[in-house]
Design a protein around this nucleic acid. Structure first.
Lengths: 224, 224
DNA sequence: GCGGCCCTGATGTGATCACAAGGCGGGCAT
DNA sequence: ATGCCCGCCTTGTGATCACATCAGGGCCGC
């Protein structure tokens, strides 16, 4: 695709692609608060281009659920309802253990070492109270593992879920004043080293549901 | 959203929305073969509009994986690799039992009766060798059940998976000369009537994997 | 003081144009 | 006859414009 083409020849990527990447990153990392309004002309002016590519980038992000359109077509980051957050968390809890399980047979030492290093970076971001850094390294931890699953369609679907949760994530990690990396990450690493598939599934699933539990009101059946 | 607005006032929906719906339906029902090339000007001319709304509709469908862009930006329906089909089938097998399970507590008699009626229609389409009709009624069966789960985000994600499988589905149902509705649908109905949640999950999961097994080469570990 | 109404400016939508890239076919050389 | 090359013409991209819609603020009347 476009990425590969750019890797071969340094031809500038299409403008709408660049806008898309930029917005997508900002949204996924939680740099935009939920409910933040955006305008096509504003996005376009920011990069000194016309509205056309801005429209295309926004349309694409809306299709992925990263942005929402009001009835009159105004664009904003989504302000998720509790029910929707619960659904998205449940989807993560379904897909991520599956990806981890598929990655397990291919997880050699070098990968586990890299995951451990990323986990250290997560801890540093947590100590610095760097919310964006925390989200970015946390996602990098998961993505690095799941890339080994060799399941691009699943990973793509999962990333759109992360994307939808992006603006909300920021609120989560600001609320919980965390000082260290998620404790379940160590369990994930241990299960990977041991080649223990059930333990890995459980650790991943718990990591996901723990991370989002803070957003759900009643801790009643959050783990159903 | 736009649908609700249209329901209140019969104002015509936005052109790009209309194009999107039309294309989406044709793709999901398998009316377009895999690898079919489309052009923005062609889509636009078909409905006597300019390229702009056609571009938006296509961009949206590309974001959902319903269409693919070649390196030079040409648009076509995706020709899925076997690996990708397996991934999408696995995603269906993860998400659909969950949706069925969530729908179970809300599944009253009227719903089960309606599902049985739809199932009859599936059988009729099968006997008439009506591939598009078969796919449409089959999806309607599943969607009708899952709508009761009150999980719009999950259902939306699932529909994008169906969408990606659309062009390929056509090939499946032409290959297997089926004469009746999927046999697991009866098991789904029975589990719903009995309120048996594990049986329902199993029946749904089996229905999904059986339906797509014909596309996978070696029947070795398709059900892993 | 306050609530409702109207107007204006901002915003999204669709059409049209200019341009660059590339696919495909015809034509030429061997 | 066949293979290659070149040029045309289709195709996607970005810019610009006209227009309908609507949100928000100011103004008037109570």
């Amino acid at each position: 695709m476009a990425t590969a083409a750019r890797a071969l020849a340094p031809s500038p990527p299409a403008v709408h692609e660049r806008l898309y990447r930029a917005l997508r990153t900002r949204i996924m990392l939680g740099e935009l608060p939920p409910g933040r309004a955006l305008t096509l002309r504003g996005i376009a002016a920011e990069e000194r281009v016309s509205m056309t590519p801005a429209r295309e980038a926004v349309r694409r992000l809306v299709a992925e659920g990263a942005l929402t359109l009001s009835a009159s077509g105004r664009v904003s980051t989504p302000a998720l309802s509790v029910e929707r957050i619960e659904e998205l968390a449940a989807l993560r809890a379904l897909i991520e253990p599956e990806l981890a399980s598929r990655a397990l047979p291919r997880a050699h030492f070098a990968l586990i070492d890299r995951l451990a290093a990323i986990n250290t970076a997560i801890g540093e971001a947590a100590q610095n109270h760097d919310a964006v850094g925390y989200i970015r390294t946390n996602l990098e931890f998961h993505r690095t593992l799941y890339l080994r699953a060799q399941a691009p369609a699943m990973l793509a679907m999962l990333e759109t879920i992360w994307l939808q949760l992006g603006p909300t994530m920021r609120a989560v990690y600001q609320r919980m004043r965390r000082n260290e990396a998620p404790r379940h990450h160590r369990m994930i690493l241990a299960a990977l080293r041991a080649g223990d598939e059930p333990a890995l599934r459980l650790a991943v699933r718990t990591d996901v549901t723990q991370g989002l539990r803070h957003l759900l009101p009643a801790p009643a059946d959050a783990g159903r």
